[in-house]
Amino acid sequence: MAAHFLFLALLALASSHAIASDPNQLQDFCIADPNSDVFVNGFVCKDPKQAKAEDFFFSGLDKAGDTGNKVGSNVTLITVDQIPGLNTLGITLARLDFAPYGLIPPHTHPRATEILTVLEGTLYVGFVTSNPNNQLFTKVLHKGDVFVFPEGLIHFQFNYGKTNAVAISGLSSQNPGVILIPNAVFGTKPPISDDILAKAFQLDKKTVDWLQAQF
Rank of each mutant, 00 (worst) to 15 (best):
C30K: 08
K49I: 08
L123S: 11
F147Y: 15
K199V: 03
L116A: 05
D145L: 03
K139W: 06
K46Y: 06
A2F: 03
G85P: 15
A184W: 00
Y101C: 09
C45Q: 06
P48S: 14
S73Q: 04
A165Q: 07
V185R: 00
L13C: 09
P132H: 06
L8A: 12
A94G: 04
F43Y: 09
K162I: 00
T88E: 11
D209S: 12
R95G: 01
P100S: 09
D47W: 09
L211W: 02
L26Q: 15
Q50Y: 14
P176V: 08
F156I: 07
L136S: 09
I78A: 10
F58K: 08
A184G: 06
L119M: 11
N183I: 05
T117F: 14
N87H: 11
V140T: 15
L203W: 00
A198R: 01
Q157L: 14
N164T: 13
V128I: 15
P190W: 13
I91A: 12
T113R: 08
D209Y: 06
S193K: 06
L10G: 13
E54G: 10
T108I: 15
T108N: 08
G121L: 07
F127S: 05
L89T: 12
V44W: 03
V80G: 02
F29R: 07
I31V: 15
K143W: 01
F127P: 01
F137R: 08
P190N: 04
L96K: 04
F43D: 06
V118N: 11
L13E: 12
V44H: 09
Q50W: 03
N164R: 14
Y124R: 14
S59W: 15
L6Y: 04
L119E: 05
N41A: 13
G90F: 09
L11W: 05
N164V: 06
L93T: 03
I154S: 02
V178I: 06
A3R: 15
N131V: 01
D195C: 00
T207A: 11
N183P: 09
T113K: 07
V140D: 14
G161C: 11
H155D: 05
I196C: 02
I104K: 03
G68M: 08
F57N: 14
N69T: 02
K162Q: 15
